[in-house]
Design a protein around this nucleic acid. Structure first.
Lengths: 337, 337
DNA sequence: CGTTATGATGAAAACGTTAACATTTATAGT
DNA sequence: ACTATAAATGTTAACGTTTTCATCATAACG
């Protein structure tokens, strides 16, 4: 392997000069710089990052940590997230991916190993990890889950406006009995989406019906169960807003199993817009949440924080918008435009 | 940050002794080792991997490269793959994830940065990358795609036995007109799956019907289109083996759109057993291919290769087995058991 | 022309480890 | 007790960079 000293020898200068030339130091005469650059490239030089990082006390690595890499349904998250991150990340950065759980001892999470950390968080269980990172003084951005703590940079989708958009859409399609299958209790996203849903109800002068709030936990199975309890009601809702697409799929299956037609008999709205939402039967009307966009935005923020660690941490909510497909029936009704 | 020299001072020994003690050298008296270990842990010591790697000429990093991180439907691959890899990988290894495309210049793929590389490959387009890695002398295992070159370690699912299992199952359920929607032309997996399908036909004395080979490219859309051409046939098949689950979903949608009932009117078998296969309507009978298992096995192999770079590279095919769900109709027919 | 500022380069130290070689200390054999 | 051998520890150099500080030209100024 070839080093700057080899280049130095070839160029007849000191290795210091080579180092400077290659790093674009203004101390080097442009002609020398060019000459050295050429030689380096001819010799196929590639820097040794261990040596480099040792002296600069950087790691050249940013770490992406996932809530729990086990969760089956979160799988497309990963790919999307990586896509978004890579888009913003200079290619010479290394990007490592780990589950929060299998990160091993928290001691291994230190500023020497990570220039910055992104946490793709799904639950409050991650807080221990998050606060460790923060106290270890590693630049940090938490993605995907809305945080209360203003001292932590955060980007997530605006679940509340998303929830509101979902219910608004149902209303605009003429629905007046709109139920909600709620997300996992305790998750911020669950409560925000419910809040948005209620915002809409209130704005339209609909009074919330206790029967129409049914618990779920974001799993397909819980969606299935929840839909069944809804279908058992005497006064069935005409539309139901599912806290995420997974539950919507469960709900669809429940309907199918009981011969309830979507959207003929009941309308469904999801949240997330996973890849599969467009291929369900019928295609699912849902709230689009762009994980890759969140990741990209978060990466930008992280990079900023790495430059200016003392800047005020930013919380950012990315708009979520409705994607209309075919799971919501449109009644002939008054439109309000 | 605390270094071995700090520990040495605290313990009243030389830093070399500390290094040895911490690395479990047999040269150190057990009592001293314990004492030093205790001090190190009390002082919250964590080694500087840059320094370590600099002198040992290792990188402590293994790289996972994906065909193209863009492809939407391959997304669950990622999560599964990571799961499998992490299961085998000592936690002090760093694991980086990149798309083959966004890896930047191939020069950055060198033994200094990667102790070993896993390529989760989907197409022959990856060959350029693969051969670069090989010629850069980095221990390498190619996953997920069956390779012809015996000089490269490789683990993939046994597509041929999978294809055969699919067709066998259809046969055993009484089907005699079995079509195939083929995968992307040129992909090894496509031809292997077709081969397996034909193995079965031949074994059962069925003669292949040219109409029953319809091209696809592994995309949902191509499955949709292919199914339509199949449904246009005068002599429709009673079962169709789809080269992967995505195309099966496309096929399902085509059937639904034309009011063709599954499995009443036509049976469907997929390949891959993605998460969603169990939630389609009806749940999809498919060939289970365990990406996490492939990844785990590949990681083991890689670790071996890193230890003994000169050992004969191993090619390994992991069995694929049928998962029976509800997309295949069972005819009253002779059983052959 | 001599001083001074300035622009370009070089020498040496440092980053935190491991490893080769050297030294000390304990153990054993006579 | 006296070497010979083994076991345990220490010294020093090395890994490939960047950085601090020093040096040497060169240009600018009066």
């Amino acid at each position: 392997m070839i080093t700057i000293k080899d280049i130095a020898r070839a160029a007849g200068v000191s290795h210091t000069t080579v180092s400077r030339a290659l790093n674009g130091s203004p101390l080097i005469k442009p002609v020398t710089r060019e000459r050295i650059a050429k030689i380096a490239s001819d010799m196929n030089y590639v820097p040794n990052y261990n040596a480099k990082n040792l002296v600069t006390r950087k790691s050249n690595t940013i770490g992406l940590f996932f809530s729990s890499i086990e969760q089956g349904t979160s799988s497309s998250f990963l790919a999307d997230a990586l896509k978004g991150i890579r888009r913003e990340l200079d290619e010479h950065y290394m990007l490592t991916v780990s589950g929060i759980d299998d990160a091993g001892s928290l001691d291994s999470i230190n500023p020497r190993r990570y220039d910055g950390i992104l946490v793709m968080s799904q639950s409050e269980l991650d807080n221990r990890f998050i606060y460790h990172v923060q106290s270890a003084d590693i630049p940090l951005v938490v993605l995907n889950r809305q945080l209360d703590d203003p001292s932590i940079a955060n980007v997530a989708s605006d679940d509340r406006v998303g929830g509101r958009a979902a219910a608004d859409h149902a209303f605009q399609c003429g629905h007046r009995s709109i139920a909600i299958i709620e997300g996992k209790p305790g998750f911020k996203s669950s409560s925000e989406r419910r809040l948005g849903y209620m915002d809409s109800l209130i704005a339209h002068g609909l009074s919330p019906n206790p029967d129409y709030f049914v618990p779920g936990d974001y799993s397909i199975e819980s969606g299935y169960a929840a839909m069944n309890t809804l279908l058992d009601l005497n006064n069935r809702p005409t539309a139901v807003f599912c806290g995420n697409d997974d539950m919507a799929i469960g709900a669809m299956n429940a309907c199918f199993d009981r011969g309830v037609h979507i959207p003929g008999d009941i309308s469904l709205i999801g949240f997330d817009d996973m890849i599969f939402a467009q291929y369900t039967n019928p295609p699912l009307t849902t709230i689009h949440k762009s994980v890759s966009e969140i990741a990209a935005e978060g990466t930008k923020l992280l990079l900023q924080r790495m430059e200016q660690p003392n800047a005020e941490p930013i919380q950012r909510l990315l708009g979520s918008k409705l994607v209309q497909r075919r799971s919501v029936a449109e009644f002939a009704s008054e439109d309000d435009h």
